[in-house]
Structures are given as structure tokens and as C-alpha cells.
């Protein structure tokens, strides 16, 4: 390919868009709507995923031991448990610590009531809080823990993480479906735009072929047209999403400070590091494939 031919194709691609401005704009708008929706779902899924991860990290299994077991014996069992691959972190809470923490929570401001207990009422409450690497491995670890001699009770909490995971799964499926439909619409519109472009330039194409233009040169401007539509159609909503996301995060942080701990948004920088290349690639890819498909169908050279 000669460099002149390359630039000629790019120039003609832009001219095609200008000559066919209404159809091109419609295609860009549809593409923009698709990428915008894609971005929204991406942001939702990404954030919910981050929340699931947070929740998973806080999910712990609490293990209580048989009465009369000494702290040394308990720690010996703890060492065995720590060897398991599912375990990320373990915290030992002695009976004294458990009682102190209980007092803090339930006798706050009325510490004198607690002094009524001469012995630690939670003498048998020494426990291990076990944090997992992967919440889905919880059941297997619990089964193992229950089989260990000396363990009285194993308490597990998993509802939050499980609900979020389930929600994320549904969100992914729904968003995947909607995005797929929108992408089909985008491809259809690009196909329409380029078909019109080919019809408008039919005479020019015929002359080009007679003069000795290569297949590449006849086709390239239409592919450039598709790629430009895809690129602009993707870039515009990504910029809009960035601005909006930034504003929403700030707004929620200011106005709903009380939910701050529950709703921790992923930073725009982290989020868009992934979303921008994916969005652009998607736009350009659809533009490229849409134009290739149309050319194959309508432009026999």
C-alpha cells in the first residue's frame, strides 16, 4: 500500500461521512447510546463487584471451643487450621478479650454493672475469627472445622456476600442482554449508513474500477467511515460518563455521608482505566465489522 493511497482512503472516509451526514449522525448517536449503556452497566457491575469483594473480605467464620480447653490447646488447634489453603487471616480472641469487648458494647456508661460478675461469664468464649480467601470455599472449610475434636461450635455469616454475588450475576446477565440488543442495532445502522454511502458513490466506484483502482482503495474509505463512526460514537459517551460519574460520586459522598461506609465507589481513575480502552475498542470494532459486512454484501469489486 502506498502512503498516498493510505491518506487518500482516510480523506475519502471523512468525506463519506460529510456527504452522508444525516445517516452518519444517526449511526454515531446509536453507537453512543450503546456505549453509554455499556458504560453504565460496566460501572454498576464494577462497583458491585468491588462491594462484593469488600463484603467477602469481612465475612468470617467464628470457631468456639469445648469447655475446659486451655488457651494453649486452643492455639494448637489454631495452628492446624491456619495451614488450610482457604484461610486468608485468623484472629484469636481470648476469653478475657471477648468479655472486655462485650462490656464495651453492652455496659457502655454502666460499667459498674459489669463489676458484679466475679468470674468471667464468657470463660468459654475464646474463639478464632477466620477470614477466607474465597467465600465460595466456606462450606468445605466449615465441614473440616466441624470434624476437628475440641471444636464446640462453628458460626458462619455469608448472606451479604451471597446476596451481592447473586445480584451481580443477574445484573451481568440483564446488562449483557441489553448491550447485545443495542450492539445489533448499532451494526444495523452502520450497515444502513454505508449502504447509502455506496449507493451515492456507485458511479464513482464504477469509474475507479475502470481506471484501475485496487479493491483495497475502493473499499478502504467505507471501512474508514465505519471506524470513525465507531470511534466518535464511543469517545463521546465515555467523556460524558467520566464527567457524570465524577459528579455522582462527589454528590453521594457529600449528601449521603451516612451510607458512605456501605457504598464505597471505585475511584473514577481506576474505573475508567478499564472502561475507556474497552469502550473504544468496542466502538471501533463494531464500526469496522459493520462496514466490512456491508462491503461484502453490497460492494462487489
Amino acid at each position: 500500500m502506498k502512503i498516498n493511497t493510505f491518506f487518500y482512503s482516510i480523506q475519502q472516509g471523512f468525506k463519506n461521512i460529510a456527504r452522508n451526514s444525516m445517516f452518519s449522525l444517526a449511526s454515531m448517536a446509536t453507537m453512543a447510546a450503546c456505549i453509554f449503556m455499556f458504560g453504565i452497566f460496566y460501572i454498576l457491575v464494577f462497583n458491585v463487584n468491588a462491594m462484593v469483594q469488600d463484603a467477602e473480605e469481612s465475612v468470617a467464620i467464628t470457631v468456639f471451643f469445648d469447655e475446659g480447653l486451655s488457651e494453649d490447646e486452643i492455639k494448637e488447634i489454631g495452628k492446624e487450621i491456619a495451614k488450610r489453603t482457604e484461610v486468608r487471616e485468623m484472629d484469636f480472641v481470648s476469653a478475657e478479650e471477648a468479655w472486655e469487648s462485650f462490656k464495651e458494647v453492652y455496659f457502655e456508661g454502666n460499667e459498674e454493672y459489669a463489676s458484679g460478675f466475679s468470674e468471667n461469664p464468657l470463660a468459654n468464649s475464646a474463639n478464632y475469627a477466620i477470614y477466607l480467601k474465597d467465600v465460595s470455599k466456606q462450606t468445605s472449610l466449615v465441614t473440616y472445622l466441624e470434624s476437628i475434636e475440641g471444636i464446640r461450635d462453628v458460626k458462619q455469616s455469608q448472606s451479604v456476600a451471597e446476596t451481592l454475588t447473586e445480584f451481580n450475576k443477574i445484573l451481568s446477565i440483564v446488562s449483557g442482554g441489553i448491550i447485545a440488543i443495542l450492539l445489533c442495532v448499532a451494526v444495523f445502522l452502520i450497515n444502513n449508513t454505508i449502504t447509502v454511502g455506496i449507493a451515492v458513490r456507485r458511479e464513482e466506484i464504477a469509474i475507479m474500477k475502470l481506471i484501475g483502482a485496487t479493491d483495497y482503495l475502493v473499499r478502504a474509505p467505507f471501512i474508514v467511515e465505519g471506524i470513525i463512526i465507531g470511534l466518535i460514537g464511543a469517545a463521546a459517551p465515555l467523556v460524558l460518563l467520566y464527567v457524570l460519574y465524577d459528579k455522582v460520586v462527589l454528590y453521594v459522598a457529600e449528601k449521603f455521608a451516612f451510607v458512605g461506609s456501605l457504598l464505597e465507589f471505585v475511584s473514577p481513575h481506576t474505573l475508567f482505566q478499564g472502561l475507556v480502552p474497552i469502550g473504544l475498542l468496542l466502538g471501533v470494532g463494531i464500526g469496522f465489522l459493520g462496514s466490512i459486512w456491508t462491503i461484502r454484501k453490497h460492494l462487489k469489486v
Binding site: N4, Y8, E204, G212
Partner: peptide, 28 residues
């Protein structure tokens, strides 16, 4: 090739119509 109906590009002037034949073969 020359045709009865000339087959010129209507949106381009005389110079551009002639230059077009050179452009499509990649002439600088």
C-alpha cells in the same frame, strides 16, 4: 476508457476529475 455519457464526477471540477485517475493509482 471513454464513454458516450462522459461519466465525470459531478461534484469535482475539471482538474479534480483528471487528477482523480492519478490519485486512485497512488500517484504522489
Amino acid at each position: 476508457v471513454v464513454f458516450q455519457d462522459f461519466r465525470l464526477l459531478k461534484d469535482r471540477n475539471v482538474y479534480e476529475n483528471i487528477a482523480f485517475a492519478q490519485k486512485v493509482i497512488g500517484e504522489p
